[in-house]
Design a protein around this nucleic acid. Structure first.
Length: 277
DNA sequence: TTCCCGCTGA
DNA sequence: TCAGCTGGAA
């Protein structure tokens, strides 16, 4: 790739970052455990929502040992509201593995990290990038969108090829700032809605899915005068979960009635995620 | 309806 | 390679 072009692209992104950088709690630390927690929380979850939960989590589980020795119940309780709560369970297991295998020290080697549950291709790279400023490229949907749009790449580019491009345009020694800059640029200037560039994965909304039931029942609840959303909220006022989860619970009941418990468990998954359990 | 700093088992 | 998973805001 043209050197001048790469340099002007780097300047553009980094200058934008200098002027418009967002402030997040996980950008105030380089503690690898804290970064790991934030990166797992941020998987498919909006940064603003994570920003509210992240400090509370660290207060309750300040280090790997504390998290590893906590009960699953405690962990999932602290996770509630973040969604995809199988992530919470995996983070819990990952903490236990770090204590056992790495003496409580979260590794910085992507090859080690990717062995941990809940840590995949992206997160295994993003942790050392943000915690250690390692000269590695980590590409999520956000960064993918920025690269495709700014470098005029085909939307059909494979993840492997895109990763190679990302490595090429990475300004050495500024990995952490660079990735934060790409994130902010993508979130503030180049949203998916604005560019029309499709994300890697789409929501599953097939008839009978958990999500489908959720929206269908929500519609009915809103239409039915007998069971308004307000009524549900009032009825479950002291429920520790959010209204979305409450609706989900009702959805599960509906699914049990229609499909039977076995199928419901298969669809929803006891702990969710990962194509069921 | 779509998208958000993806991962997992099949 | 792909369906499926959470919750909420736009």
């Amino acid at each position: 790739m043209n050197v001048t072009f790469v340099e002007s692209f780097q300047s553009k992104i980094l200058e934008f970052y200098q002027q418009n950088r967002r402030s997040f709690p996980w950008r105030m630390t380089t503690d690898r455990y804290a970064i790991m927690v934030s990166e797992v929380m941020l998987q498919q979850t909006q940064a603003d929502r994570v920003a509210r939960r992240f400090p509370l989590w660290l207060e309750r589980f300040p280090d790997v040992q504390t998290l590893a020795s906590a009960s699953l119940r405690e962990v999932l309780d602290a996770w509630s509201g973040l969604g995809y709560n199988s992530r919470g369970q995996r983070l819990h297991r990952a903490a236990a593995m770090v204590v056992e295998q790495f003496d409580g020290c979260v590794p910085s080697d992507p090859a080690r990290l990717i062995e941990l549950p809940g840590i995949g291709a992206y997160t295994s790279r993003s942790i050392p990038v943000f915690a250690d400023n390692l000269d590695l490229a980590a590409v999520d949907t956000n960064i993918r969108r920025v690269l495709i749009h700014e470098l005029n790449l085909p939307e059909s580019i494979t993840p492997k090829a895109l990763l190679a491009v990302a490595e090429e345009v990475l300004p050495k020694g500024r990995s952490r700032d660079w990735h934060n800059a790409l994130m902010d640029y993508g979130a503030m200037e180049l949203t998916g809605r604005k560019t029309g560039i499709a994300p890697l994965t789409r929501q599953s909304t097939f008839k009978g899915s958990r999500r489908w039931y959720r929206s269908a029942l929500l519609r009915e609840l809103l239409k039915s005068g007998e069971l308004s959303r307000e009524a549900v909220e009032e009825r479950y006022a002291d429920c520790p979960y959010g209204i979305g989860t409450i609706v989900d619970m009702l959805v599960e009941e509906a699914m049990i009635e229609e499909y039977g418990e076995q199928r419901m468990l298969r669809i929803a998954g006891e702990s969710g995620g990962g194509g069921g359990k």
